Computed example of a mutant assay.
Amino acid sequence: MPGGELTGEQWLKMDDIANQWGNGTLKLSSRQAVQFHGIIKFELKKTIQAMNDVLLDSIAACGDVNRNVMCSPNPALSPIHAQVFPWAEKLSQHLLPQTRAYHEIWLDEGKGEGKQLVSGGEDSAETLEPLYGKHYLPRKFKIGIAIPPENDMDIYTNCLGFIAIADGDRLAGFNVTVGGGLGMTFGRDDTFPRLADTIGFCTPEQMLDVAYKVLEIQRDFGNREDRKLSRFKYTIENFGVEWFKNELHERLGFELQDARPVTFSTGVDRYGWQQGIDGKWIALLHVEHGRIKDKDGYPQKTALREIAQSGLARFRLSGNQNLLLTEVEEK
């Protein structure tokens, strides 16, 4: 779900899953995704197949791979937003695991016949997973895309960040940030939060290659002996930013340009109504702790279901666990 985008049909399916197999609520995560709580193991396959019915999946929702790519959620806010948002989908697709194991296990692809070797097997693992190989990454990896002056993606806390740089109404490219992360382990003084470093600028056409090579470096040099120290921020901290830039440039075959000036003025969501460049309206709704549910005097979950059934809006999730209703026409 790159950038947190959902159609009304997809929202209805999420609501159905929560009602039928979950605890009756939906949880909007801080990475622009939907979580289901209370699903028992025996209902898991039905849940995943129901998601697949509306072209959604949980591939790379966990594990030592790149997770959901975050992006400022509303492409209608400006011409730059409209140009940036598709790159979240391209980046997500570019870094997905290639194995068909998910489809074989949960979607009955092939129904047990003619299954190909999945990652972790012998000989052809690198062929099936040219990026992740047999052992995947040392730990999970997180990517965000921010559009100044709003830092609603908290870009400097991501493993890899892309900050959109505008030239008038044209997307010139992205500043590249590496090595962010907020986590630490209690009682381990060698673990710590870290803000990302800005290492340069790339054009839109270079973005996918830059991301791929960054993940390659983490795959090859990340700590695989101690999972408490295996996040990408520790790779940057231990080897140094200059070493990393040199390694990245060598793998890319070109050098990043100097970073462009950037100013962020806010990291919060703007609640209420805004009109997009397409003339349609966007409503940003507060969701307490990201939990969609009905409660006395405030039937939020029911209201959102009725909106989805009406076809009056699309749904987008913010990085602050709130919800946008988009493409609302003025009538």
Rank of each mutant, 00 (worst) to 15 (best):
Gln274His: 01
Asp278Tyr: 05
Arg270Trp: 10
His289Pro: 04
Phe239Cys: 07
Asp278Cys: 14
Arg291His: 13
Gly276Asp: 09
Phe264Asp: 11
Ile277Pro: 04
Val262Tyr: 02
Ser265Lys: 13
Leu284Pro: 03
Lys245Thr: 01
His249Pro: 04
Asp269Gln: 10
Ile282Asn: 13
Gly276Asn: 11
Ile292Tyr: 09
His249Asp: 07
Ala283Pro: 05
Glu255Asn: 09
Leu285Ala: 06
Glu237Phe: 03
Asp294Lys: 02
Gly253Glu: 15
Glu237Gly: 00
Lys280Ser: 14
Gln257Ile: 06
Gln257Trp: 07
Ile292Cys: 08
Lys293Trp: 11
Val262Trp: 03
His289Ile: 07
Gly276Pro: 06
Gln274Phe: 03
Arg251Val: 00
Trp243Ala: 04
Val287Phe: 13
Ile277Gln: 10
Gly276Ile: 02
Arg260Ala: 08
Val268Cys: 08
Val268Pro: 04
Ile292Ser: 01
Asp269Ala: 12
Gln275Gly: 02
Phe264Ala: 12
Gly267His: 12
Asn238Met: 01
Ile282Trp: 07
Ile292Asn: 03
Val241Asn: 06
Val268Leu: 10
Thr263Arg: 14
Gly272Asn: 03
Arg270Lys: 13
Gln274Leu: 04
Glu250Asn: 10
Phe264Pro: 07
Leu252Trp: 11
Asp269Phe: 12
His286Gly: 11
Tyr271Glu: 10
Leu285Glu: 11
Leu284Gln: 08
Asp278Ser: 14
Tyr271Thr: 05
Glu237Thr: 03
Asp269Arg: 08
Gly279Ala: 01
Thr235Ala: 05
Asp294Leu: 11
Arg291Met: 12
Phe239Asp: 07
Trp243Val: 00
Ile292His: 04
Asp294Phe: 10
Ser265Pro: 05
Ile236Pro: 02
Trp281Pro: 04
Lys295Pro: 02
Gly240Tyr: 00
Leu256Gly: 05
Val268Ala: 15
Lys280Glu: 13
Trp243Ile: 00
Trp281Glu: 15
Gln257Leu: 08
Asp278Leu: 07
Asn246Glu: 14
